[in-house]
């Protein structure tokens, strides 16, 4: 008797679950599709915010960045992608100071782990969601991130020592 009951209940349970599955897929059938028709929609295609396309150094409108050339990003990079080139200068009031000359980033060996951005004490670098990076030679993938003629943001340099 019990097995008979089980036979019928399992039959109707199975039928119910099948119909439920079919209703879900039918709803999915009519939902808007997520496919991006890429080259056509290039003008208005927007990547999601968390997409890591390329490392950049943040500059403000006065062409100033936050990088103090500490080299923590370089040390954290698992792929040896970043090379921070700096020099020692003596300021007007006689202090010795390390200043960034070139921030080199090899896009070809970056694995987009974001460890550099996480470890940066001054939020000087960030990832942007650009994605059209194809070039013809590897040399073109080695990028200088600090803009030409940029320098450290002045007040930032004074306050960072206290805030951190």
């Amino acid at each position: 008797m019990r097995s008979t009951q089980e036979y019928f209940s399992s039959f109707f349970n199975g039928l119910g679950s099948l119909l439920k599955g079919m209703s879900i897929t039918l709803r999915e059938f009519f939902t808007p599709k997520t496919t991006e028709k890429y080259p056509e929609n290039r003008a208005h295609l927007k990547m999601f915010d968390r997409f890591r396309g390329e490392l950049i150094m943040l500059h403000n409108e006065k062409n100033e960045h936050h990088c103090v050339a500490c080299g923590i990003c370089e040390m954290n990079c698992p792929n040896d992608t970043i090379h921070v080139e700096s020099e020692m200068i003596t300021t007007e009031d006689g202090k010795k100071k390390k200043v960034l000359t070139r921030y080199m980033y090899d896009h070809g060996s970056c694995l987009y782990c974001q460890l550099c951005v996480r470890s940066c004490p001054h939020q000087a670098i960030a990832f942007v969601p650009t994605f059209e990076h194809a070039v013809f030679t590897r040399e073109k993938l080695i990028l200088q991130l600090n803009h030409e003629g940029s320098h450290l943001e002045e007040n930032k340099a004074e306050t960072t020592g206290k805030s951190n």
Binding site: E28, F29, T31, K33, T34, T35, K37
Partner: peptide, 13 residues
């Protein structure tokens, strides 16, 4: 096409 639409894609286009 039907397969693609069920999987939230566009299929051959």
């Amino acid at each position: 096409k039907v397969c693609a639409f069920f999987q939230c894609r566009l299929g051959p286009n």
